[in-house]
């Protein structure tokens, strides 16, 4: 699968409190959450992001709280994928579990600038910066994670296992 979109760029240690501040966690409605996504780090994000856009960030993206509301809010904004130098582990799990594509690519994280147009191929991990022609290659997912993503998340994966025990866990 390939996506193409405009880049929103952030630094290191973007925590889940700025992705979706806890004052909005009295709901789990993804669309309500999306209206406040990134509010404390980029007040204009929610109103300017368009479906298919791409987040590019530094290391340890999604650190802090385990709130799944963070990837849910990003996904509900229409973000097609997140590219970071690295992800905090709970955010990493959560993104895979809800079927939000994420890629680890330190080179793209360092080089790609805000506003650039990116093309991302999830099957190959190829990232193309269409604004300046640079090409990057993301770390491929381990096979188990690929199965999770292909199934569309953990719930679909586990259901498919129930129906077909031959699809063994890793």
């Amino acid at each position: 699968m390939k996506v193409q979109g405009k880049v929103f760029k952030y630094g290191d240690n973007v925590d889940t409190d700025v992705i979706i501040p806890a004052r909005y966690l009295n709901t789990s409605d993804a669309r309500e959450l999306a209206a406040h996504c990134m509010e404390d780090i980029d007040a204009k994000f929610a109103s300017s992001v368009r479906p298919g856009d791409i987040l590019v960030a530094g290391k340890n993206f999604g650190c802090g709280s385990s709130r799944e509301h963070a990837p849910l809010a990003i996904k509900a904004c229409g973000v097609a994928c997140i590219i970071a130098a690295s992800f905090a582990r709970i955010f990493y799990r959560n993104a895979l579990n809800i079927g939000l594509p994420i890629l680890e690519c330190p080179a793209a994280s360092e080089t790609v600038a805000a506003g650039h147009a990116l093309s991302v191929d999830f099957d190959t991990g190829a990232i193309a910066d269409l604004t300046n022609g640079m090409i990057f290659s993301a770390e491929p997912f381990p096979p188990f994670m690929q199965k999770l993503v292909a199934a569309g998340g953990l719930a679909s994966y586990i259901r498919s296992q129930l129906q077909n025990p031959a699809i063994a866990p890793a």
Partner: peptide
């Protein structure tokens, strides 16, 4: 635990880690 500070119980010699809500749902079910 669907709370990042679930790691607290490591003080008691348990393996204990925070996860998200979908993992917690899977854990409750399976």
């Amino acid at each position: 635990g669907a709370d990042s500070h679930t790691c607290t119980y490591g003080a008691l010699g348990a393996f204990s880690t925070g996860v998200g809500s979908t993992d917690a749902a899977a854990g409750m079910a399976t």
